[in-house]
Simulated assay, not measured.
Amino acid sequence: MKIKEIIVVEGKDDTVAIKRAVDADTIETNGSAINGKTIEQIRLAADLRGVIIFTDPDFPGEKIRKTISQHVPNCKHAFLPKHLAKEKNGKKIGVEHASPEHIRFALRKARKMENEPKEQISREDLINYGFIGEERSKSRRERLGEILKIGHTNGKQLYKRLKMFQISRDTFLQAVEQILQEERSNG
């Protein structure tokens, strides 16, 4: 599978994992302290070929994603759920631990965030469907992020990401129904 866009990853091990999965070029941020030179490289890549941001599903990865998005709009975003990015012993999380199949799937589902989204899902919806303020909210948000391919978030980030990706109300409600059915099946 050949990827036209340049994939932004955190480090060398991520590049190795990407190249095992697809034919693609990468830019490495070398951690969350992204310097101006790296931002300029990403900006040039976005202008010439397009960019897919593919960072680890953890706090530093989200910080990198947010920093790049602020400086370089119109990037695509690829996400891996935490459980698909864990090393075999389960201690570390990162793109480098994902299988080639999971990397390819995440890249195929990469999406652009929109700057001026229309509100289709309200904060009240998130509360009413148990994504905020309940004991099970965290696990529901994780599952919703997997189903919609928008990554794991806290409640505030979930609201923002649903808007940014312009997730339709119908798509959201279908995902909610799937989560509820899974919960009923699991007792």
Results as ranks from 00 to 15, higher is better:
2 K>W: 10
4 K>V: 08
5 E>A: 01
8 V>Q: 03
10 E>W: 03
11 G>P: 05
11 G>E: 07
11 G>M: 06
11 G>I: 02
12 K>W: 09
13 D>Y: 12
14 D>M: 03
15 T>V: 12
17 A>F: 03
19 K>R: 15
19 K>A: 07
24 A>C: 08
25 D>I: 04
30 N>G: 06
32 S>Q: 13
33 A>Q: 14
35 N>F: 05
36 G>C: 08
38 T>W: 04
39 I>E: 08
41 Q>Y: 06
44 L>E: 15
44 L>W: 07
44 L>N: 14
45 A>P: 02
46 A>Y: 02
47 D>E: 15
48 L>I: 08
50 G>C: 07
53 I>G: 07
57 P>K: 03
58 D>C: 11
62 E>G: 14
62 E>A: 14
62 E>N: 14
62 E>P: 07
63 K>Q: 15
65 R>L: 11
71 H>L: 13
71 H>T: 09
71 H>F: 12
72 V>Q: 05
72 V>Y: 03
73 P>D: 09
75 C>R: 01
79 F>S: 02
80 L>R: 01
82 K>L: 01
84 L>P: 00
88 K>T: 14
90 G>K: 06
90 G>L: 12
90 G>I: 08
90 G>P: 07
93 I>K: 11
95 V>Q: 05
97 H>N: 15
99 S>E: 04
100 P>Q: 08
101 E>M: 10
101 E>H: 11
104 R>L: 14
105 F>K: 14
107 L>Y: 05
107 L>F: 06
107 L>A: 08
107 L>Q: 07
107 L>I: 13
108 R>E: 15
108 R>M: 14
108 R>T: 14
110 A>W: 01
115 N>Q: 14
117 P>Y: 02
119 E>L: 01
124 E>A: 13
125 D>L: 06
127 I>D: 03
129 Y>C: 08
130 G>A: 08
130 G>V: 03
132 I>Y: 03
134 E>L: 11
138 K>D: 07
140 R>M: 08
143 R>K: 14
145 G>D: 00
148 L>P: 00
148 L>R: 01
149 K>Q: 11
151 G>W: 00
151 G>Q: 00
154 N>T: 01
157 Q>N: 11
157 Q>S: 02
157 Q>I: 00
158 L>F: 00
159 Y>V: 00
160 K>F: 00
160 K>S: 04
161 R>K: 09
163 K>M: 12
165 F>H: 05
166 Q>C: 07
168 S>A: 03
169 R>D: 05
173 L>I: 10
175 A>L: 02
178 Q>E: 15
179 I>Q: 12
182 E>H: 09
183 E>L: 12
183 E>M: 11
184 R>I: 08
185 S>M: 13
187 G>M: 09
